[in-house]
């Protein structure tokens, strides 16, 4: 994560390892399996947040069952204390999220729900009203992992989000290099990259992560 900070990242998303990551492709699945086998616990995410949040804003990315088991209120208190800004919840939709939204608001944390190309305008409006911080728009229909091209529907989705809310819009899923980052930055407020950075860490350690971050950051600022 420090390599990412050095590489010019604007904010960091810290994932909580979960045994059944239904929104993640093979790269993150393998990483999560390794983390859990290595003894990673839910509470460790707060240590990671504490480490980097003085340098850049951090949000947690967590599947719902570990967060619920930890206790939504307790999770929010501990995340706030660690210096976190909010949490992205990929398998939680606003309809099922009242306990988490209440807990997050109480700590002035940002609950971040996702919108997808298949979302209706009505649902996008609900997410826009419920979220704080930003709206996470998934560039494609699918799971995490690098793709050769950014979906053409991403731009259209961002426009639909802007019609419903003034919150900034971040686009993620499939973005893996500076070229794609530049393209997405042309219509979105933020570019979200996950699996490509995990793969970089796997293949080349922190040096490779720093290199990729520099490439992505340069792309965004092109």
């Amino acid at each position: 994560m420090l390599a990412m900070v050095e590489g010019g990242v604007d904010a960091i998303e810290v994932g909580v390892p979960y045994s059944d990551p239904g929104m993640d492709g093979p790269v993150i699945q393998v990483a999560v399996d390794a983390a859990l086998r290595g003894g990673s616990r839910v509470a460790h995410v707060f240590d990671a947040v504490r480490e980097v949040s003085p340098r850049v804003p951090t949000v947690v990315m967590g599947y719902w069952n570990p967060m619920e088991k930890y206790g939504p209120a307790r999770f929010a208190v501990d995340l706030k204390a660690a210096g976190g800004s909010g949490a992205i919840t990929p398998d939680l939709i606003p309809e099922e999220a009242q306990p988490w939204v209440d807990a997050a608001y109480a700590q002035e944390l940002a609950p971040v729900f996702l919108v997808a190309p298949s979302s209706t305008d009505e649902r996008i409006a609900t997410v826009g009203r419920t979220n704080r911080g930003f709206v996470y728009a998934t560039a494609v229909m699918g799971v995490t992992g690098a793709r050769s091209a950014v979906g053409s529907r991403a731009e259209e989705l961002v426009a639909r989000v802007r019609a419903q809310t003034d919150l900034p819009v971040g686009v993620g899923l499939g973005i893996s290099n500076g070229e794609q980052a530049a393209q997405v930055a042309g219509f979105a407020d933020a570019v979200i990259v996950g699996a490509a950075l995990v793969a970089a860490l796997r293949d080349g350690g922190p040096a490779r992560v720093r290199q990729l971050t520099e490439d992505l950051a340069a792309g965004v600022r092109r």
Partner: peptide, 20 residues
């Protein structure tokens, strides 16, 4: 109407699946 059997059931899914 929202798929709950008391406290159970519901929808804990990625937003992308809600339309389907």
């Amino acid at each position: 109407a929202t798929g709950h059997f008391g406290p159970y059931g519901g929808r804990f899914v990625p937003e992308a699946l809600v339309a389907a």
